[in-house]
């Protein structure tokens, strides 16, 4: 995987943010009834943002030095985190988090099943103890429907 990809994605993300806000700022109005509208500051921030992102991305990506870090493992973790977040309302905190930590141990750190399972079990147990029992946070622990 291209090691510059995360940096490129960062700049694309910022550009998309600037573009979306610049476009929506028009519908909010820049000057309404003789006073500054809700879209004025967003426009003043979005336009220089778009100019800057072009300049910074061009110069940074051209001269980007490799930090020697792998990109594959963080991306596996990102996919796992996104799936976890998306499935959390259905899986609940216990099952969902156990699966997430299993991915962490098995795929990202290549640990054996028993060690990964132990880590998942203990870490989730501690978190449930702290938040559910000590801090009384009403966590949706079980899968939906159970």
């Amino acid at each position: 995987m291209n090691r510059n990809l995360p940096a490129l994605l960062a700049y694309v993300l910022i550009a998309a943010l600037g573009m979306a806000f610049a476009l929506q700022s028009a519908s909010l109005g820049y000057w309404v009834d003789g006073v500054a509208g809700a879209g004025l500051l967003p426009l003043f921030a979005a336009v220089p943002l778009l100019l800057l992102v072009a300049v910074v991305a061009f110069s940074s990506l051209k001269s980007a030095a490799d930090d020697g870090h792998s990109v594959a493992q963080p991306f596996v973790a990102i996919v796992a985190l996104c799936l976890y977040a998306a499935s959390l309302p259905w899986l609940g905190f216990i099952l969902g988090t156990v699966l997430l930590v299993l991915v962490w141990g098995l795929l990202l750190y290549r640990k054996s099943w028993p060690r990964a399972l132990a880590l998942a079990g203990v870490s989730v147990l501690i978190a449930v103890l702290i938040f559910q029992l000590i801090l009384s946070v009403p966590l949706p622990l079980k899968p939906a429907g159970l």
């Binding site: 959390l88 141990g105 702290i130």
Partner: peptide, 27 residues
Amino acid sequence: FWILGAAVLVLGIFGAYSLQNSIFDVY
């Protein structure tokens, strides 16, 4: 770190939810 990192990750997720009891905060 494979143990410490997992602990911080799990505490972070549960902690984010506990702010407002909202899954949106986890997102």
